[in-house]
Design a binder for these strands. Structure first.
Lengths: 153, 153
DNA sequence: TGCATATAGTACGACATCGCACTAAATAAT
DNA sequence: ATTATTTAGTGCGATGTCGTACTATATGCA
């Protein structure tokens, strides 16, 4: 939870930075989820999107690492995705402890439809916040993310 | 939940932007909460911080609006803060439906101690991510936040 | 080979967040 | 003035996230 008031410098600068980031995360998540079918959260879609972009057949643990959430959280998300028939969990032939996550045809179809739906939101945003403005933020955010990630260990 | 992989442009640019923001929120929240006493969440501290900076004696609803969370969420947070003795809820003399939230001496003391503790985290960050870099991100993030906020209605 | 340790995944419980429904009080409409 | 509507706050249930503990398998080491 983050407030949206300003003011302050010095150490307060970093507070405000994380405040802004926190509130943007909150608002963007709500906006995205309003575009997704009922009961489908950004966390669900993000996993599908990850697999569509980088390929499926990964282990749950590698996914939890990619999203930097506890493995129990990823396990829960995958269970929901499997219930909806969007993914399949198959045994990992190389490690009997492990499983591999594969997208189903239904999952791919849902992803495509969701991308279209979310594209509407993106279109609106692009008109008031240009791709150049968005791109300008990326290097700083990536650096910040990598620093926090590295410290986490 | 957001992944941390890169690549892509066009509409994908905005996906990546919100991905980065989502993961930074996740990591920074975890880092902050590691610095707070057990069971104290950033959402709790943020409310105290808000009142210290902008004054107390506000209504729960105005706080929920400032943080843009549902009023039930703010109600829950305030209940916890009151249980810890950091705030007091008094009746609003101007509106018998309403209450006003005041910080206690214990609340102010806790805030001061927490600020010191969080300052340590900030100090580390400032050495690898300069105030100039942080400041450079602010205008874009503020604009993005305001746009999302305005659209929300 | 045999044992200690590390790793993948799950079960379970704690809790924060949120939506919906409800009560009480204020405000608007007639 | 009376009634309808809006607003402030709470109660309650659903669910996502996360920490701890556990099982099964894999790996390191003697």
């Amino acid at each position: 939870m983050s407030d949206s008031d300003g003011a302050g410098e010095g150490p307060g600068l970093y507070f405000r930075l994380f405040n802004e980031i926190g509130i943007i995360e909150q608002l963007s998540r709500a906006a995205f989820e309003a575009r997704l079918p009922d009961g489908v959260l950004v966390s669900h879609f993000s996993v599908l999107n990850h697999m569509m972009r980088l390929g499926d057949g990964k282990t749950p643990l590698s996914l939890s690492s990619a999203f930097q959430v506890p493995k129990t959280t990823m396990s829960h998300t995958l269970m929901l995705l499997e219930k909806r028939g969007w993914i399949e969990m198959r045994p990992n032939p190389e490690d009997k402890r492990s499983k591999l996550v594969w997208m189903t045809e239904a999952g791919r179809a849902f992803w495509q439809q969701a991308i279209g739906s979310l594209g509407g939101e993106m279109g609106w945003l692009a008109e008031v916040f240009s791709p150049e403005e968005a791109a300008a933020l990326m290097p700083g955010l990536e650096k910040l993310r990598k620093l926090l990630d590295a410290r986490r260990g």
